[in-house]
């Protein structure tokens, strides 16, 4: 990827970071549009996507190592760095989304073990510890596998968190954790496909031959699972524009491009965008129906509505953090590879 494109990513990231800091420290919720009957929106959808991409990137890196003799490869390192960057930005999304961002740390010091979200949070930290062990100790192989295990743990915990919500018929299904696992593989391989080629086309060409296939098959698998999911209770998905955006832009187009070997990193970027639409559609579908018929009209006030459209600040942060994850992954991978060569 050219210098201009990287500069654009950096500018978007800085704009997103400034908007996020403004929300956390100055404006509060006055710049967000979610409310009481649609408590989660764009940021939660992207948090779910980034966490999934982190897990999938780690697994892709492990597969690259495993399929080429078992020792971690250079692309494994790039994948794990991408995983760390995506996870960090995923957590930045949820931190910004909290009603009290500065109290978010309580989840580590005062967790409720009944909550799968608390379990996921501990597993995120375990993942970062393993990533540190992989990058800075000699026990690379052990830490690589441990990081992969932690990633399985947090994706399953999240899938069970959403899938176990009795109040949300659209999510309350065992298909939810299954879909979370499959979309993690797709989002993670898309992240490695994108960041791997940005960082070093040479390394990607030598070690990343399996990534294209993983991406292609996993995208088709996610689409199949989501269609089953839609017919098995998530009917709201079928009438959602973002869902069809995912199917067309995130699956059909990238799969055709991958089959034709065209587009350089574009299939990876499109797959990530499509999966972002998918996660947004998933989150929105949970709030499509009123918990009790007539509730949204029972008392009229701001934020007591079923309709939700992300605010300008929500968009700026969303674009900025996704750009930031890609920029940071590429930047750190380049720095590390350069340090290794020196």
């Amino acid at each position: 990827m050219g210098k201009t494109a990287k500069a654009v990513l950096l500018v978007l990231f800085v704009a997103g970071a400034v908007a996020a800091l403004g929300k956390v420290f100055i404006w509060g919720e006055s710049v967000t549009n979610y409310g009481s009957y649609t408590p989660w929106g764009l940021w939660v959808g992207l948090y779910v996507l980034m966490v999934a991409a982190a897990a999938g990137a780690a697994w892709t890196g492990i597969y690259v190592a495993w399929s080429q003799g078992g020792e971690p490869k250079r692309l494994t390192t790039i994948s794990l760095i991408a995983a760390g960057a995506f996870l960090a930005f995923g957590l930045a999304f949820i931190g910004t989304d909290l009603g009290k961002p500065m109290k978010g740390f309580l989840i580590f010091f005062s967790p409720a073990f009944s909550s799968k979200l608390a379990w996921a949070s501990w597993l995120y930290m375990a993942f970062f510890v393993c990533l540190g062990g992989y990058l800075f100790t000699q026990a690379k192989k052990a830490f690589m596998y441990l990081a992969g295990l932690a990633a399985v743990g947090f994706v399953v915990a999240e899938g069970l968190f959403f899938g176990g919500m009795v109040a949300r018929a659209a999510w309350n299904s065992l298909l939810t954790p299954v879909s979370f696992l499959a979309s993690a593989v797709a989002a993670g391989s898309a992240a490695v496909f994108t960041v791997g080629q940005m960082s070093s086309e040479k390394i990607f060409a030598e070690e990343g031959y399996a990534v294209k296939k993983i991406l292609m098959y996993s995208l088709v698998a996610v689409a199949a699972i989501e269609v089953v999911h839609a017919f098995a209770g998530q009917a709201a998905l079928l009438s959602s524009v973002p869902f069809w955006g995912f199917v067309v832009l995130g699956v059909v187009v990238p799969v055709i491009m991958l089959m034709k070997n065209s587009g350089a990193i574009l299939p990876g970027v499109l797959a990530l965008l499509g999966l972002a639409c998918n996660k947004y559609a998933f989150v929105s579908s949970g709030f499509a129906a009123e918990p009790m018929p007539g509730l949204a009209n029972a008392f009229q006030a701001a934020r007591l509505s079923l309709s939700y459209a992300p605010s300008a600040v929500e968009w700026v942060v969303a674009v900025g953090f996704v750009a930031g994850a890609i920029w940071a992954a590429d930047f750190l991978a380049n720095k590390l590879l350069a340090a290794k060569q020196a």
Partner: peptide
């Protein structure tokens, strides 16, 4: 912490 998980999982809104 304002995560709104409880809001999402109340069947009665």
């Amino acid at each position: 912490i304002g995560c709104r998980s409880c809001i999402a999982n109340c069947p009665y809104g």
